[in-house]
Simulated scan of single mutants.
Amino acid sequence: TSRKVDPSAVLGCLKSHHLFSKAEVCVANKLPHLQSRTGVDTHQLQLFNAVITFLSPVTQFTPLKSYYKSHGCTLHVRSDLPHVFCSQRCLVMQVGAHSFSFLLSTRIHYNIFYCLYLMENSSVTLQTAEEETLASRCRQDLCWPEVKLTHEQQRILNHKIERGQIVKIMAFAGTGKTSTLVKYAEKFADLNFLYVTFNKAVAEKGKSTFPSNVTCKTFHSLAFGSVGKHYKEKGKLNFNKMSVFSISFLIQNREGQSLFIRAKTVSQTLENFFASSDKEICEEHTPIWFKNTHGERRFVTRLEKEINVQEAKEIWRNMKKLDGDAEKKYKMTCDGYLKLWQLSKPQLSGYDAIFVDEAQDCTPGE
């Protein structure tokens, strides 16, 4: 906690919590040696830990944390919480929490794991002269603010990517994957990078975050520049997915499935094909089951699969046509021109390496 904070004032604020009295009794009975110390900070911290221990849902930690914040004291995840959780675990063992009429949540096991994780990956600052020189080359308005990197992030920066290599960065959300890529691009300023993401907003933000040697694009923007723009010029581009309703007007009425139900299965067949790495539509892209007009699940028969493939192929063949569709009933979709771009096996020349954001969500077609 900050030295500017009055421990007595914070302790007084903490007394408004409904579990404070129980925490105070625990500390007084089980940790009497804390009472004899001249400093109030240790006693205050143990009371804080005791209250945290008694909390059932994790969400109750937020209002408790706000007590500290209202007095100008901020809990820092990397510096304060590990000590809080460690002392909290010690408090649980010393107090003998099972003597109270409450159940300890399994979150305690997670807290221990998370605490050890933070301590094991304690922050380190880049100190090498080479990195300081490279960082100074970056424009001030484009460089990522100076951050402390964990040893895991440092290992990534110490690896220079080679041609043909694939490097996977596996980490939880919010752990600094993007900031690591920014620092990597800053360190290797002589290389040209392509940062590819799914979301347009993320790509736009990347343009103001990454240094000038990084080009930020979405998958669809890359495909649009090569394929999609031609369909837009011809007025044959549909920026939305082809609806089931519109497909129902493009297929024939047959025995068996109703027209609308079959339009659904044809739509799913096309979507599965677009997401695959296959060159042609086949039965593997058809759905396994469907819901009939009564809401009952039914398996798609072999004959129905053949019909779905036939009709999906016909729609895809007409979608690809730039000319010859005067009524423009078969418009190209975004996933459609992305598929055409993938089938063209594009060569992304001019880049030394490609950063793929959220690569685990990529389909085989991407």
Rank of each mutant, 00 (worst) to 15 (best):
L338Q: 13
L338C: 15
F290S: 15
F249W: 06
I307P: 00
E271H: 07
S277K: 12
D323P: 01
D323C: 04
G295T: 07
I288T: 13
R317W: 01
T301W: 11
S248G: 13
D335H: 06
K279R: 13
N272C: 07
L250K: 14
L270S: 01
R298C: 15
T333N: 02
I281T: 04
E283G: 07
K328P: 00
A326I: 10
I281P: 06
Q252T: 12
S258K: 11
R254S: 08
Y330I: 00
K264Y: 11
A326D: 10
N253D: 14
F274W: 12
T301R: 13
Q257F: 08
V266I: 15
E327H: 04
V266Y: 06
K313Y: 00
Q310P: 00
K328G: 00
A312L: 05
L322C: 07
Y330A: 00
S276I: 08
K329R: 12
R302W: 03
S277W: 02
R262Y: 10
P287K: 08
H285E: 04
V300L: 14
Q310Y: 08
K329P: 01
K331V: 00
K320D: 01
L322F: 08
N308T: 00
D325H: 02
W316F: 14
E284F: 09
G336F: 03
G324E: 03
T265E: 06
K320R: 15
I288L: 13
M319K: 12
K305F: 02
R297F: 11
W289I: 08
Y337W: 09
T333C: 03
T269E: 04
K321C: 09
R254K: 14
G256S: 09
K328Y: 00
S258F: 07
T333S: 10
D325G: 02
R302A: 09
K329C: 04
Q268N: 13
C282P: 01
E271K: 09
G324W: 01
R262L: 11
I281Y: 03
F274V: 06
A312Q: 05
I315A: 00
R317K: 11
Q310N: 09
V300I: 14
I315F: 01
M332H: 03
F290P: 06
S276G: 06
E314V: 01
T286R: 02
G295P: 06
R317T: 03
K328T: 00
A275R: 11
A326G: 03
I281W: 03
V309W: 04
K313W: 00
L322H: 10
C282A: 13
S258N: 13
T293C: 10
G295R: 09
F274N: 06
K321V: 02
E306S: 12
T301E: 13
S267M: 05
I251W: 08
K313Q: 08
E255K: 10
R254N: 10
H294Q: 15
E304Y: 00
E314I: 02
S276W: 03
I251E: 08
Y337H: 10
F299Q: 14
S248Q: 15
W316H: 10
K313G: 03
K291H: 07
D278F: 05
R317A: 02
N272A: 12
C282R: 09
S258G: 15
